[in-house]
Simulated scan of single mutants.
Amino acid sequence: MMQVFCSPLRYVQGISASNQLAQQMDAVGMKPPVLLVASKSARSQAEKAWQESMKQLGWEFSILDFTGECTPKEIDSVVARAKTLGVKSLVGAGGGKVLDTARAAANICNISIALAPSIASTDAPTSALSVVYDEQGKVLEYRIFKRNPDLVLVDLSLIAQAPVRFLAAGIGDALSTYFESDACRLSRKPNMRSGLSTQAAFALARFCFDSIIADGADACVAVANKIVSPALERIVEANTLLSGLGFESSGLAAAHAIHNGLTMIPSTHDFLHGEKVTIGVLTQLALEGKPRPFFQDIVRFLKSVNLPTRLKDLGIDANDLNVINTIAKRATQPGETIHNEPFPVTAAMVADALRAADALSAQV
């Protein structure tokens, strides 16, 4: 099997980066007219900057409001609008589900795509993958595309204005990257691009972990006070670029499969992706039998950034075996990334690991 490493064509991060949206799109060869799919929050904060940037280049553009969920219906709606307008480029602006929707629509339309996250809550922006949900909020499928985004543009000014919960969720999502990358490295299972990992991808995953542990708590303090600090700059890069490159080119394993299992439980639907992935990380560590002192260190870190460490934090009773078994069954269905672990994994093992991780976390 070949080694494969993928990345976006261009990554731009900085204060007031929204002011350069059209110029950065132009720098990678993207063309007007442009359809910009935006969350309500991103539009309210950055629309004037987008307008001025597009005006400077004389680019025609339209804005389509995002409805809130990356579903097949929403993707088809964006595709229909893009085709009606005859656009040559598409921009997604907002949170992870907006970006996933825009990416999927651009792939169907075979047009260029730029992604402008307004929160640093996931590692979705740099990848060629969209997580698609059904109307009830359950994970339906991963859609993997032929190409990564042409441009990822991260405006630190917007990140600093967002609720700190979003940054913490991004830290939870990014925390999984090293552990899942290591599992795929040991098992020699394929990454998200159907190839083996490279030394570069694994090194990025490890650097992502080190950055998160070093700067995560300080970055959360900065956002809580709406400050762009050096720690925040490093964490946004870790959450977005390092984690994005690391997971896509190294691979996913138990943590994200357990996240998918958690989405089967209605009480988890109001929690962010990274908050659920955090429980997946702890369960993966228990499943792999990591030493207790290391496990406890991770729990202490998660508590320092106000991320969930117990099933009850997601509204789940660890003693409700029907719920636990539902999660475990979904996490281990055929084709799930949990089978990238370097040993066979069964639903019974996951059920035990969920409860073991919960019990170990309770002792910290």
Rank of each mutant, 00 (worst) to 15 (best):
Q363F: 02
T337Q: 11
Y142W: 13
S250E: 00
A351N: 00
P72E: 09
I316E: 04
S127F: 09
F179N: 04
G216A: 11
G29D: 09
R330F: 11
L242I: 03
Q333A: 13
D297Q: 10
V236N: 08
Q20R: 15
V87F: 12
P33L: 08
D210A: 13
Q136D: 14
P125G: 11
A205E: 00
T240M: 10
S176F: 03
G172K: 06
I108Y: 12
T337G: 01
I258L: 00
G68Q: 02
Q24E: 15
M192G: 09
L85R: 14
R147H: 14
I265A: 00
A22C: 14
A38R: 11
A255I: 03
L115K: 07
F5D: 05
T283H: 04
A217D: 11
A253Q: 06
A102Y: 10
L85Y: 14
P342I: 07
S18Y: 04
M1W: 07
G274P: 00
G14F: 05
D65W: 14
D352G: 01
V91S: 00
A201L: 05
P32V: 07
V78C: 07
R188W: 12
R185D: 12
I235S: 09
P293Y: 13
A318D: 04
R193F: 13
A183H: 09
F295A: 10
G58Q: 08
C6M: 11
M1R: 07
L156I: 08
S53M: 08
V223F: 10
N107K: 11
P342Y: 09
E74A: 12
L321R: 03
A231V: 01
R310K: 14
N107T: 12
G289I: 10
A222R: 03
E69L: 08
P125Y: 14
G246T: 01
N325P: 02
G315C: 00
I235K: 09
N191P: 05
T198Y: 12
G280P: 06
A253T: 01
D76T: 13
W50G: 03
L90W: 13
I171V: 12
N306W: 07
G92L: 11
A348M: 07
R185P: 01
C208A: 10
